[in-house]
Simulated assay, not measured.
Amino acid sequence: MNGGAPRTWQQRIAWRLTVILSALVLFFLMAPILAILPLSFSSGSYLTYPLPGLSLRWYEEFFTAPRWTSALRNSVIIGIASTVLATVLGSLAAFGLARWRSRLKPIVLAVVLSPMIVPVVITAVGLYFFFAPLGLTASHAGLILAHTALAAPFVVITVSATLQGFDMNLLRAASSLGASPLTAFRRVVLPLILPGVASGALFAFATSFDEVVTVLLLAGPEQRTLPREMFSGIRENISPTITAAAVILTLLSVGLLVAMEGLRRRSERLRGLVPR
């Protein structure tokens, strides 16, 4: 069809089965979210179906109760700070690796990306024993540094992918015109790789905002983040407020996905404008 050869009945059946199977897999993945969403509007004090009534009381508690507002504030502060650090360090690391020609490059890249590969619980235990003598446990600074280490590899990957289509001759041209290395990077490189940098920053923020294992080991009572508060709530006292928090986190994730799709399209447009 559409100018090609007509499909046989076997191909049409296979296509329909593929669509049905894909829809079932999508429904299976979305079912937990679809189940939580109505519970967040329940007027009852327990997580039960059918709903006794509809109410916004749990959203009100989420935005007014000190335990939840404090956890949300900590998550935002730690997430933004670690995102800034991870974006700067990850972008510089990706740019340096892109220009480096050495047999040691794969080894260095593996070390840089190791926080993505090593199980997070091992990384968290290692960070705990490293931070404890330095007095960085039970502190915002320790959590920011820990989340920076976990988030930086995502920035390295996205920026490295963007640099694959970057013509390094542009840097040489800028240098031949008298631009310093910093000016050349700021005026030539950064505008072209900005979609990749922004995508990496979004991944870094999502990684920090959703992280709970290192928070369990490194955080004190004053550094409880939103995932930590939700985890503790599930263990100690299951409250429908957790469903409201889950819905808000889901909406945040959807917003990040939409933003990353917009950045991906902008990156493709820029690649189409700049010759390799």
Rank of each mutant, 00 (worst) to 15 (best):
V25D: 04
I13P: 08
V120K: 15
V215I: 01
A179Y: 15
P6A: 14
E268V: 09
A98Q: 12
T250V: 12
G196F: 00
N2V: 04
Q223H: 00
F166P: 00
L134V: 01
P240L: 10
S232R: 06
S42V: 13
P115Y: 04
F62S: 01
G96C: 11
D167Q: 09
L109A: 12
N237C: 00
S239D: 08
Q10D: 15
R57S: 02
A110P: 13
L182E: 04
M30S: 15
F62D: 01
P38N: 10
G178E: 06
S40Q: 07
F95D: 12
P240G: 03
L39T: 06
T69K: 13
V188Q: 06
S42L: 13
P221C: 00
S139I: 00
E268W: 05
M260G: 04
R264G: 07
A138C: 09
L163D: 13
V212R: 00
A35F: 11
N237W: 01
T64M: 07
L109N: 12
Q164A: 10
V159P: 01
Q164K: 14
A35K: 06
L252Y: 10
F130P: 02
L72Q: 11
F95W: 13
A141W: 10
Q223D: 03
V88D: 03
L192Q: 14
T83E: 06
V155S: 10
T83K: 07
R7P: 05
V108A: 06
Q223M: 01
S139N: 03
T214E: 15
E236F: 15
L150S: 09
V188P: 03
F185S: 04
V215Q: 01
P119S: 09
T69A: 13
I80K: 10
L145N: 05
V120D: 15
L270E: 03
N74H: 04
V19G: 12
S239I: 01
L104W: 06
G126D: 12
P50D: 00
L113Y: 05
S160C: 12
R57L: 04
G255M: 13
V111G: 10
L150A: 08
V121R: 05
I20V: 11
A204K: 07
L109C: 08
R16D: 02
P133I: 02
L54E: 06
V25F: 09
P221I: 05
A161P: 01
V88C: 05
G96R: 04
L72C: 09
M260Q: 11
W9G: 12
F27N: 10
F63E: 10
L54M: 06
A31L: 14
T8V: 08
L163G: 08
L218N: 02
A110C: 12
W15H: 14
L263H: 08
R187G: 07
T158K: 09
I248A: 08
T183C: 00
F154A: 05
L89M: 08
S267H: 14
A201N: 06
S208V: 02
L56R: 13
G196S: 00
V120W: 10
L257Y: 12
I80A: 10
S232F: 07
R57M: 02
R228S: 12
T83I: 13
D210Y: 05
A184D: 05
G220E: 02
A86G: 09
V247L: 11
P181L: 00
T225L: 02
M30Y: 13
I248E: 01
V108I: 10
L273G: 15
A31W: 14
L194S: 08
L47N: 07
M168A: 09
W9N: 14
A98H: 13
V258K: 07
